[in-house]
Write a protein that binds this DNA or RNA. Structure first.
Lengths: 149, 149
DNA sequence: CTCCTTGCAAAAACTTTGCATTCCC
DNA sequence: GGGAATGCAAAGTTTTTGCAAGGAG
């Protein structure tokens, strides 16, 4: 999805709710979508402050909450004690492979797994609205540099 | 696995490391394994304090960390901002179906999903050591009592 | 006796909130 | 001008840690 399309969605969301578009908001949102990855609030804050040193963490938290409510970002919890956000719109659903040594996160998707998940849920009478699949291990590089001991 | 078997593992772990078996430790461990479920530290602490009012949270945290290192418990992070622990040994691996309305947690396992996960990891050069699969939605009861609007 | 463990309270890490001020529209 | 957003600092949460006192082996 293009920045223009994303901005259209955001503008709509903001105007529908009587919210306002501010310098900080714009900066945070642009920074977040610029390089898509998986940001912690702290990392995002660092990037934002590089452009405007006076933006407070609170504003970053508030903006990410807003983006999440607008459906433009998803909060992921990889068990590090702090949430990570990732862009959410215009991207296919995907899951994560996480290297426990270097922290690399690889995204993947597998239609067959999704289907099996639906089947399992159905069997238990559940209606599934979302899911989270994370595989933890060592990436190729870390397997090399950290030989079995 | 029987309490006896579990205790054997724990005793081994403790003696191997020069640790000690204390009243509090025993109480917390027994309470944790007694009714297997998914406890937050706070819930576990409440149960423990019902038997010994003077046990501190810190001890519960320290004991659960110990159990985790010993491989007898696993920390799960369902994104509530606080971790939940579940017994880990002598049970087959399983994943979770979580009702987002009433909080019910159903465990399931599916060999085919596991196989597909391995295949995906291999394709990306990862060696997987663990994984987490959670399906979020409404359980049968909550679908009934919360009709579509 | 030794040194591990505990309780307590303080500290840490992450996130939210209250309030006066500033800024959109 | 008026309501919304910001910055700041204070407060909340959850978890960890330092230290003196107590306890297991």
């Amino acid at each position: 999805m293009t920045p223009a399309e994303r901005n259209a969605l955001l503008t709509k969301f903001i105007s529908e709710r009587g919210l306002k578009s501010t310098r900080q908001r714009t900066l945070i949102v642009d920074t977040f979508f610029e390089s898509d990855g998986h940001f912690s609030v702290e990392e995002l804050w660092a990037k934002v402050r590089a452009q405007d040193a006076k933006v407070s963490v609170a504003t970053v938290y508030r903006t990410m909450k807003l983006l999440t409510e607008a459906g433009l970002a998803h909060a992921q919890n990889f068990g590090e004690g702090q949430a990570r956000y990732e862009p959410a719109v215009g991207r296919d659903h995907h899951d994560h492979l996480i290297c426990t040594r270097c922290g690399t996160i690889v995204e993947f998707e597998d239609e067959r797994i999704e289907q099996l998940q639906s089947a399992v849920a159905r069997k238990h009478g559940f209606t599934v609205t979302s899911h989270k699949l994370e595989l933890y291990g060592l990436c190729r590089e870390c397997q090399r540099s950290e030989p079995r001991r």
